[in-house]
């Protein structure tokens, strides 16, 4: 009797464990909140679009800091590597690159770069090989980010220390560009 109860317990634990694992790994396949799709209503791909400031009743992405202003670009690598350039206002800012599921891949901020502007080139393996063979002179000073996927999301966040600076900071974000740059 005790043996049968033990076998039953073991069986229950094992099947429950399998169910646990299947559920955890299955959720991402059925989840509907893909940041890539959630961002589609805000604007087209391959250009930066300003997200509305986080506020009650305003549709934006969950998890963003209301103290920051955000601008976002959904980039695609089909037409060549993507060059991202911006000269943000002189306050705390960060540039983060996410995959289409919203997982972080690469990032920098004004403390890391120690300079006032960003100029990076997001390139896949083929682009990188092309660049090695025949590097355009103007790309010498650019950071090349190795990108595995065919697309991604670039998010610039910038601190708005005072409400009165909002206009100036928004203007600095409008200098942001995210352009496919065909090679050769």
């Amino acid at each position: 009797m005790i043996l049968r109860a033990l076998v039953w317990l073991l069986g229950v634990a094992m099947i429950a464990g399998v169910l646990h694992i299947v559920t955890v790994f299955g959720v991402p396949h059925y989840a509907v909140h893909e940041p890539w799709d959630e961002l589609a209503p805000f604007g087209p791909t391959d250009r930066f679009v300003a997200l509305p400031r986080v506020a009650p009743g305003v549709k934006s992405l969950p998890g963003l800091d209301p103290a920051m202003m955000q601008t976002v670009c959904r980039f695609t690598l089909g037409k060549g590597p993507v060059r991202i350039r911006v000269t943000p206002a002189d306050v705390y800012w960060s540039l983060s690159l996410y995959d289409r599921h919203g997982l972080h891949v690469w990032g920098t901020d004004n403390r890391v770069t120690g300079q006032k502007a960003i100029d990076i080139l997001v390139a896949n393996d083929v682009h990188v090989a092309q660049l090695r063979e025949n590097a355009p002179d103007e790309l010498e000073d650019i950071v090349v980010v190795d990108w595995k996927a065919g697309d991604g999301i670039a998010l610039i966040q910038i601190m708005v220390p005072l409400a009165s600076m909002e206009g100036e900071i928004a203007a600095s974000l409008r200098t942001a560009s995210c352009v496919p740059t065909p090679l050769g």
Binding site: V24, F25, V27, P28, A31, H33, E34, P35, E38, L61, P62, G63, L64, S94, S96, Y98, D99, H101, G102, L103, H104, V105, G107, T108, D109, V112, L155
Partner: peptide, 24 residues
């Protein structure tokens, strides 16, 4: 993306939230 655990991946897939990067 490179080091995420399955639980965090499942949670983020549900909420759709943009998490702060580790270096940030």
């Amino acid at each position: 993306a490179e080091t995420i655990d399955p639980y965090t991946r499942a949670r983020i897939a549900r909420t759709g939230e943009i998490a702060m990067a580790a270096g940030e």
